[in-house]
Amino acid sequence: MNPTLHAVRLGLARGWIETRHTLVSRQEIGFTVVTSAAMIVVMYFQRDATLPGTSISLAAVTLPGVLGMLAAFNGLLSAVGGLAVEREDGTLLRAKALPQGMVGYLVGRIVLVSLTTLTRVLVVLVGGLVLIPSLAHTPPSGWLTMVWVLLLGLTATLPLGAVIGSLVTNPQTAAGLSMLLTGGLAAVSGIFYPLSALAGWLQALAHVFPLYWLGLGMRSALSPAGAAAEIGGSWHTLETIGVLGAWSVAGLLLAPPILRRMARRESGSLMQMRRDRALQRIG
């Protein structure tokens, strides 16, 4: 029995168990219901509007972007928040005390984030299928594109979240920082209104981050007729793969050493110190 492989298998089991716990937790159900409802309401009001200059439903253009955004936010926030919380409550230290425990922990985290993201995307997608009849006519190739764009979106954001979660030491800072980051990115992502309406320097900024490309890729998958409304009138598929791929590679290169360094420094008294500080904040 190869111990590392064994730990990977345990990580898969762990991810599945935690996903089950998460999906039935009241907090998670509440969060999913509220965010999904908000997005479905937006689409409901857009259902009769069309993309200016075309006959494409505005909702059909918004939905793919929203799905991409969900994937990115989940990838980033779950990784950041999860790490920050689990460093404080001792989960990480527990993993450190087990042989090959960190391998199991990381694999488990990746499975958990991926599966919960998938669930949230599915919930909104089902709502979209009901509201936007044209969505049901998406060809298999479109669904396939959606899957690889989502996966690439996850690999671009999850390691990044892990890096931020390792560098920031308390959950509040972590949550605040990532909300700021994702909120800012969403504003210039081209998901809620076309990027071409923004100032040039904002457009350039948006092109650097994964969120714009994630939205673009999702639109190319689920609303292929709208290419004319995009910048340059094209889906820029290769560039999408390039930028998301670059973020993924950077994240996957950076995350392991930073995670290792963070885990190496983790100890019971550090955990206690953070907890005392947290109690002081409350008290």
Partner: peptide, 12 residues
């Protein structure tokens, strides 16, 4: 290893 305090794995 048994540390002074843990609060982990609450949902398990």
């Amino acid at each position: 290893v048994v540390l002074q305090s843990w609060r982990d794995h609450g949902s398990w």
